[in-house]
Amino acid sequence: MDTLSPIGIFDSGYGGLTVMREIVNALPQHDYVYLGDNARTPYGTRSFETVYDYTLECVQYLFGQGCELVVLACNTASAKALRNIQQLDLPRLYPGPTPESGPSRRVLGVIRPTAEVIGQYSAAGHVGVLATSGTVSSESYLVEIGHFFPELTVTQEACPMWVPLIENGEHRFGGADYFVKQHIDRLLTRDPLIDTLLLACTHYPLLENKIRAILPTGVTLLSQGPIVAASLVDYLARHPEFGLSAGPTLAGQPGQRRFLTTDSARDFSRQASLFWGEPIEAEKVVF
């Protein structure tokens, strides 16, 4: 594998930048290419077939940019497209040197890494999942968490207003408090024993302060970014064939970051600073 291969990060919009930020903090020496499919967002209300088609197209674009490993920093894409891409497309389109070695390109998601550890945070055995309507309806978290922690009681709550509030900048104001409290109260009414709450949408960390202000004492709030970053560090250590664990640049030298969007580069650059935490300059791409 080419040791200069960048890591690809994909999301339907901006939210994946909150995951990328944590990955970059954990692995600053790598080069990264971020792609936001803003021209076709939101994914959450689209069918499984549409999300799969869009996600595969974007993943293949990132492969074309030199990425040999792509992280779907999008819960909807992870829920509706990842399995087909991993099991059907990668072995067929990007076969490895031997069947045992697996495909020469890899795609990872954000649901499984979270499901693998969430039970470690809950003493009561009751967890809540806040997500988009598409992620909730896919039941991916119920399936994945049930695989690793079958004893857990998992209650989901769809929060369809949260992403529009965030992307329109309204999350910073008092008007968003009503919608945050509405869903937290509804979830905790359905299961008052919840002691661990997962933000299962990469936009939701921008509401973290408002959520914490509402949560009862003793409820642990989890964001996916740090969990996914730690999982990726472990994955690269276990897969040295990708030549990424040592880093493509000299020790102490940060890698390069490219930010791509399928919509307006100017609009993306302006909005992305909310999620990335500092100004960026994006490029528009056309498939």
Rank of each mutant, 00 (worst) to 15 (best):
V107E: 00
V51M: 03
G128K: 03
P42S: 01
A81W: 01
R83E: 12
D37W: 06
Y61A: 01
M20Y: 12
C74S: 15
P91E: 12
V51I: 12
D53Q: 14
T135Q: 03
A124Q: 14
A79P: 05
L90Y: 05
A81V: 03
V107C: 06
V70T: 00
L108R: 10
V70Y: 06
L69R: 01
V71N: 00
S101M: 10
G134M: 02
Y61K: 00
T45L: 08
L62W: 14
C58I: 09
T132S: 12
V33P: 09
L130M: 09
S133D: 08
M20D: 10
L88P: 03
V71I: 15
T132Q: 08
L82G: 11
R105F: 09
V24L: 09
S140A: 12
I85Y: 02
P42F: 01
E100L: 14
K80P: 05
P97S: 14
L130P: 00
D31N: 15
P103W: 03
S101P: 03
G125H: 06
Y121T: 04
C58R: 14
T41H: 06
S78L: 10
A115T: 13
S47Q: 07
A79F: 08
C74N: 10
R112C: 06
A79L: 10
V70I: 13
Q60G: 04
R105L: 08
A79R: 14
T135D: 01
G125C: 04
S133Q: 05
A73W: 13
L108W: 09
M20G: 08
C67F: 11
V19K: 08
L72Y: 07
Y32H: 00
E100H: 15
Y52Q: 13
P28M: 07
S122C: 02
R83H: 11
P97A: 13
G15D: 04
S138V: 02
V24Q: 07
E100G: 13
L72G: 02
L93Y: 13
Q60F: 00
V117K: 11
Y34N: 15
T50D: 12
R40I: 05
L27P: 11
L108S: 05
V136R: 02
T18D: 02
H126T: 09
Q86I: 15
L17Y: 03
K80H: 13
